[in-house]
């Protein structure tokens, strides 16, 4: 489903953060090479795993700028598995120590 051997980086604006089961998703709007907006569906773990790593439902909001590292879908669709997310001010999201329970 995901190509872990060819990870890539995307920078864009969050349209929606779906804090849902069985997976969470970030809908990220990214400008393509021709300057046209494209929406990517970025899959994450279930809320229990995000919560354990310090994420909360409010950690990512619509309008946030993010740079993400993903393992893209093998079929070439605009989607992938989110491996890392960094905010516009350079803060990596994802470790429990950064956002105490």
């Amino acid at each position: 489903m995901f190509d872990a051997a060819h990870t890539r980086s995307l920078t864009g604006t969050v349209r929606e953060f779906q804090w849902t089961n069985p997976h969470s998703y970030i809908q990220l709007v990214v400008k393509n090479d021709r300057g046209k907006d494209e929406e990517w569906s970025l899959e994450m773990g279930a809320p229990v795993y995000l919560y354990n790593q310090g994420w909360r439902r409010s950690t990512v909001k619509a309008g946030d700028r993010l740079t993400v590292t993903i393992a893209p879908l093998r079929n070439g669709d605009k989607g992938g598995l989110l491996l890392k997310a960094v905010t516009a001010d350079g803060k990596a999201l994802g470790k429990a120590a950064e956002v105490p329970p």
Partner: peptide
């Protein structure tokens, strides 16, 4: 097995 934000 510690699961990361990716679910893996």
């Amino acid at each position: 097995t510690e699961i990361d934000i990716s679910g893996y």
